[in-house]
Design a protein around this nucleic acid. Structure first.
Lengths: 147, 147
DNA sequence: CATATTACTTGTTAAATGCAAGTGAAAAAT
DNA sequence: ATTTTTCACTTGCATTTAACAAGTAATATG
């Protein structure tokens, strides 16, 4: 990995590197939707985010993959499709995203109030559910890929 | 303010608008440092972030102010200085930042492990401390500005 | 009153993003 | 079997945003 100009400062304080990974208009949304809406394919992201450019989506997925937040595997049932999945590191962002959604809900008028209520009422349970869903999807993938 | 192309999608799901506010390389770092390192002035940010451009810093502070995350008030003791402060909305981001720091610390090697330990060991207490510090600073400001 | 600080602004250049069109491989339809 | 679709992209170009260097206005300090 090549050192950048500001390498010295990078790890001086926690967050600097993370913000390099996540500090853009799309990455967090992509992660949110993989986590909460079970998005897996390029097409799903593309159709959902009005405004994202196709090359940018490709680039963000590549970067998330390079940063170990996401993996990509071809769909065993359809060779055209690539299934994107969160890694353990990626699902580890669930508390961050949850707090962010709660903050957002407190200060913007957002949709999906049901989800927000659930997060507020039982944050721990919600996070456990998110992780469970993720583990199920991973298990499913392992099965279909052939153990 | 002109409506943007993707205005329709903006509030459909929580987070979209927030990511518009915070989804860039600097905003979250600025907020972190106002929260955790008590940064107040333009100069402090400028000296700390190797790599930030002066016009971009000015723009980010302006945007954070416009979004109600930060306020700016002239220093009563030095008319050149502007003191930036987090608003209630801004300090509301403390849980987000905290989770982000914890995530970052788990996946990068970061400095300030003492802080990280504290966050991990007693998250609630840590957050209470952050809020208390913020309230003290606000009280102080009220006093010096003249009640 | 000269010099220094602070918080910027104003160009200009470089990089990132947005947009339209196109590509190649695999699947579905005819 | 071959044409048409679908999917996951890439490529080229226009536009926007960010980085860098320099300058400015309003204090403050010596």
């Amino acid at each position: 990995m090549p050192q950048k100009r500001n390498a010295k400062r990078r790890s001086e304080c926690p967050l600097n590197v993370s913000v390099e990974m996540l500090g853009d208009r799309w990455s967090l949304l992509i992660i949110r939707d993989m986590m909460l809406r079970e998005f897996r394919t390029y097409k799903q992201f593309m159709e959902c985010y009005e405004g994202i450019a196709t090359n940018i989506l490709a680039d963000r997925l590549r970067r998330l993959t390079a940063n170990g937040i996401v993996t990509a595997a071809p769909d065993p049932r359809d060779g055209r499709k690539l299934n994107y999945q969160l890694t353990a590191k990626g699902i580890g962002l669930a508390p961050v995203l949850t707090e962010m959604v709660l903050w957002a809900a407190a200060h913007e008028d957002t949709g999906n109030q049901a989800l927000v209520q659930l997060m507020r009422a039982d944050k721990k349970g919600f996070l456990a559910g998110v992780r469970k869903g993720w583990e199920e999807r991973k298990a499913e993938e392992r099965k279909s890929t052939g153990s």
